[in-house]
Design a protein around this nucleic acid. Structure first.
Lengths: 346, 346
DNA sequence: TTGAAAGCGCTAACAT
DNA sequence: ATGTTAGCGCTTTCAA
């Protein structure tokens, strides 16, 4: 079961490994190796069914030809779409991609970071859930090119491709206000250290403030990551019910929205008649629901494309020993108005 | 920017690389290395921030500690969920996972297979879209442990974790028939060489036959992969409309369902009043739609768990030079009845 | 209880 | 136009 190596091809042909290596790496011409010999090498490699061992190659060249991607949750369509596109882009650039999912767990993210490091990935794209970015800072110091996506990490001097969460949330909230809503609820996740959620919360609050609405703490629900469904079931009815209940709801991501929509339906409420509803993070579901749900869409493909572009630049710079500036890229969102907010009443 | 190697640790300590290697791989006791020395090594490794180069390790040991996964489309929640679970399981078993998406493209699958091969993955889990399984057969012959998931490939003697697509489709169709429907449409994908789709089609046809319904070719629509939306928009209305139009629809996967539901809504039809609707492949969307959609759910977690288990066995067997039997595992599906079919009329 | 040396498969500097 | 050689960082016989 021994696999064919360069040496096998060389021996068969009674030439040197160098020669074979050169030819197989298209450096034949450049080194003035005769067309004839080149053809012989190619033919023999084909015949023996030779293919290069990337681990040996990587060891020798000091790089693996691999990029690591860590997303917060690969089962979330938002990240899945981005991952798919990033794979395309890295492939185009000649890299392979190792896709990992931290499942929003600090500890798992750390483990993944270590394993990617041990595998000598040539670069890293991370949507980080880490509270203390030490692990990332260490990797950066070790010379690993890192690009952040989706979530910013303060004080960590690496380039990032982000989305204007503040503006998106502001617009969404303002839209509800313009429809006449005065009591607007916001459902978010509880470890609000994550930049995206914080920014969305701020956009929401500022939009209220700008409209002269005094914000009530009972309008905000912070849901623990690991029990979205249960918490929404338990807490949402109180937020909605009563004379002072909210008349419109804005959820911070597609996950929360799904649970909230289910609870609202089970309460027998009608959207948009009894309650206006909108969410950050446009997904298929929103377009197809009855009524279709207003949402703030993120440019997922662009995030993927730009992050790979940044990473490629970074790899080149680090390779040349150049200083790398950490230029953040902030992409804007698109408000998709749909019936779930169109006939709001208050 | 040179990274710390085993030799660095050894030199600092004025001991041999062997010693350091042994200790770091928990083989210290076994080789009777004094506790004291072990402690010194551990401390120094920590101090220098040493971590092993997996490429060197892999090269030396002839294995990479990596499993490759190729799914047909990582952006599809069905595969994304499976991928996530497979990652968990492989991690538990001490492997890393390289997740790839073939995007239903033969040619891309081939490319991915080659790159995974070059990377010396220790095993492969594949949901293959390949028409001619030559590439897979070659890999198998080369000694790569391979497990198929989701889609079977005839004549390829490797273990597979499948789902009883025939039975699921049969049940779904029978359910429609039991509701009184006589004209039932089936939307599938056009390269029907994919085993899952073929089996679902067969289940559908057989259920009709069993009920004594003569099947009409106009009830079946085969949609090309790369233009689901467009084709459904163009062709579905004809299938539904008219005196002889179908009164119930069964889509072969979640993708098609989404497009079909959108078209049906745009036509102004009401589900289930004007048309009963159900689909293979239960996804969140179906539960949340109004009305909720009846679907045939696949045991995604089980697929993930079982495939990794099979692969681990296979790797062990191949490692020991044992013959590996290709035992297929066929899991059963769950019919989830929801309002989209409950009040069917014909 | 510890060390020397070989070698995994490849590339690249340096011959010739 | 082609070959020799060294070495990437690790594990593993074999020796001491």
């Amino acid at each position: 079961m021994k696999r064919v190596s360069l040496a096998d091809v060389a021996n068969d042909l009674k030439v040197s490994k160098t020669l074979v290596s050169l030819v197989l790496n298209q450096k034949g011409d450049q080194h003035g190796i005769s067309k004839q010999t080149q053809a012989r090498v190619l033919a023999k490699a084909e015949e023996l069914n030779y293919f290069p061992n990337q681990m040996a190659r990587g060891l020798r060249m000091g790089k693996s030809g691999t990029i690591g991607l860590i997303v917060a949750d690969i089962a979330n369509p938002f990240y899945a779409t981005i991952a798919r596109k990033i794979e395309d882009e890295t492939n185009k650039a000649g890299y392979n991609l190792i896709i990992c999912s931290s499942d929003e767990k600090d500890e798992k993210e750390l483990r993944l970071l270590k394993m990617l490091r041990d595998r000598q990935v040539d670069g890293l794209i991370v949507s980080s859930t880490l509270q203390r970015p030490n692990a990332l800072a260490d990797l950066k110091r070790l010379g690993y090119p890192i690009v952040l996506i989706d979530r910013a990490i303060p004080r960590l001097d690496v380039p990032a491709v982000l989305v204007d969460n503040y503006q998106g949330a502001f617009n969404l909230t303002k839209h509800l206000i313009d429809l006449g809503h005065k009591r607007i609820g916001h459902l978010s996740l509880s470890p609000v250290h994550i930049s995206t959620l914080r920014d969305r919360l701020k956009g929401y609050k500022d939009a209220l403030k700008a409209a002269g609405i005094k914000h009530q703490s009972s309008w905000i629900l912070n849901i623990p990551f690991d029990d979205v469904r249960g918490t929404v079931e338990k807490e949402l009815p109180a937020m909605i019910g009563g004379k002072k209940g909210v008349t419109a709801l804005f959820t911070a991501n597609n996950n929360i929205a799904v649970s909230a929509l289910e609870v609202i339906r089970n309460m027998g409420l009608n959207i948009p008649h009894d309650m206006a509803f909108c969410s950050f993070d446009d997904i298929d579901l929103f377009r197809l629901m009855d009524p279709p749900i207003t949402a703030c869409a993120q440019p997922r493909e662009e995030i993927a494309i730009e992050s790979v572009k940044l990473l490629k630049d970074l790899i080149k710079k680090v390779g040349n020993g150049e200083a790398a500036s950490a230029d953040n890229l902030v992409l804007s969102t698109t408000l998709r108005l749909r019936p779930s907010t169109l006939n709001g009443n208050q």
